[in-house]
């Protein structure tokens, strides 16, 4: 039997499989009730309509069962609202390595349309343009690099 926190922390995001829910900041808490061994996992969605949440809940339960914690509850909280600032440095590095430009720091709490350069995750060039602010998943926008001509995903600052 391994620790509940360790077991849940390695669950990967079903739509961006290179990063874990812990690295993305989706995982908020893992609490073990003393005595009963019951595990309560608290998660928060990136976007309200994120369709990956059901899969994430199922994956968490499966990971806990495999680690010897069959009695588990997954709670979803919406406050405080998820922010891309919660993505860890490791998470950002993994996103970039997988060809997804990580979000810029969000800063002062308002959503600012990003005109700052987003670096191409393939060649590093800052000469990039946004093709569409909505991409293959709710959390991404579609960009293209002017230097290497490759299109790429960019995780939108939220």
């Amino acid at each position: 039997m391994t620790g509940a926190r360790e077991a849940v922390a390695v669950v990967v995001d079903p739509e961006i499989r290179v990063v874990t829910i812990d690295e993305l900041g989706i995982l908020r808490a893992v609490d073990e009730e003393p005595g009963t061994g019951r595990v309560v996992v608290t998660i928060t969605p990136t976007y309200t309509g994120c369709p990956a949440m059901d899969v994430i809940r199922a994956d968490i339960r499966r990971a806990l069962a495999a680690a010897g914690h069959p009695d588990a509850e997954v709670r979803t909280v919406y406050h405080p609202a998820w922010s891309t600032d919660w993505i860890s440095d490791t998470g950002r590095a993994k996103l970039a390595a997988a060809g997804i430009a990580p979000p810029a720091p969000r800063g002062d709490g308002t959503v600012v349309p990003l005109t700052l350069a987003v670096r191409c995750p393939r060649c590093g060039s800052p000469e990039t343009t946004q093709i569409s602010r909505f991409g293959s998943t709710a959390c991404k926008a579609l960009w293209r690099c002017g230097s290497c001509s490759e299109p790429f995903d960019h995780l939108k600052a939220l």
Partner: peptide, 20 residues
């Protein structure tokens, strides 16, 4: 195609808020 994806994404956001 980009607009197709954009409108579907916005619809999904609306649905998410509606569910809550």
């Amino acid at each position: 195609m980009e607009e197709d994806i954009a409108l579907a994404n916005i619809a999904l956001d609306q649905l998410g808020a509606a569910r809550l």
